[in-house]
């Protein structure tokens, strides 16, 4: 395990954009309290695709929610782009999300009454900002929706809808993009397309991405994969193949079974 940590030195070492210090998260009180996270510290480096893996109940979703400011840790602090987000009020968090954070969800979450392009522009419109037409055109081209701009979500396939969601999350050029099981609701071919798109945004635009997944294939496109078990960070791999990721998962599960 110590090996894994030392191996984690990224190829292009830059500054951390998200850092978490000794995060714990406890749900409920007293006897029935559940500790979802029991002290997790990590740094997400700029321009990297970091994936978070772990068996269900390991705390990976909770970790992502806390890193993204959607949930508060019981203890510990989280900094995004140098701001301590654990002390922010709702309004400050909203403004932080506008400026620094993008989201991709498992269930796409598009507005049914808006066209693909309108959905993509939604974060800018909420922030009251004028879209940069060139960037928007490039983005729409990149996600392959140039001929689908005026289509409503109900007229698009699942993969196309997720591509709209990706473009929506990239349109504000967020400091970090959080993807929660982005391929969880898609078939394998479409999943690959979506993963390549995410990978591409890291390679082409230097986008920082944190992706929660339980799909070893998804983790394989990441620069770094962190493994969570029982609320603790148990392994941190650099770029790995899907078989390496699977092996690591197996190790963790057998360790847990013992």
């Amino acid at each position: 395990m110590a090996d894994g940590l030392t191996n984690a030195a990224p190829a292009v070492s830059t500054r951390p954009v998200v850092s978490a210090m000794s995060i714990t998260r406890r749900y409920g009180e007293g006897e029935s309290a559940v500790d979802a996270l029991r002290g997790v510290a990590l740094e997400v480096m700029s321009g990297e695709l970091t994936s978070v893996m772990g068996p269900s109940g390991s705390g990976k979703s909770t970790l992502m929610h806390i890193l993204a400011g959607l949930d508060r840790p019981t203890q510990g602090t989280v900094e995004i782009a140098g701001n301590d987000i654990t002390q922010m009020n709702d309004n400050e968090l909203t403004l932080l999300r506008r400026e620094h954070i993008g989201f991709i969800f498992q269930f796409f979450n598009l507005l049914p009454m808006l066209s693909a392009e309108e959905n993509i522009l939604l974060p800018l419109s909420l922030a009251g900002e004028k879209p940069d037409t060139e960037w928007v055109d490039e983005l729409i081209g990149k996600v392959g929706l140039a001929d689908r701009r005026e289509h409503r979500p109900s007229e698009l396939s699942g993969g196309q809808q997720q591509r709209v969601a990706i473009a929506r999350s990239l349109v504000t050029r967020p400091t970090v993009l959080f993807a929660d099981e982005p391929t969880g609701n898609l078939d394998s071919t479409t999943s690959d397309e979506i993963l390549q798109l995410l990978r591409g945004s890291v390679d082409d635009y230097g986008q920082t991405i944190v992706m929660v997944t339980h799909d070893a294939g998804a983790a394989a496109v990441a620069d770094r994969t962190m493994f969570l078990a029982d609320g603790l960070l148990v392994k941190d791999l650099g770029r790995s193949s899907s078989s390496q990721v699977l092996a690591a998962m197996n190790d963790i599960q057998t360790a847990a079974a013992r």
Binding site: L70, D90, N91, T94, L95, R97, R98, G102, F103, F105, F107, N109, L111, L122, P123, L126, A127, R168, S169, T172
Partner: peptide
């Protein structure tokens, strides 16, 4: 509900 959650996540304030 879920739609409102998404809107809040992508930057809609409570006031909005």
């Amino acid at each position: 509900t879920r739609e409102l959650g998404m809107l809040r996540a992508v930057g809609m304030t409570r006031r909005q």
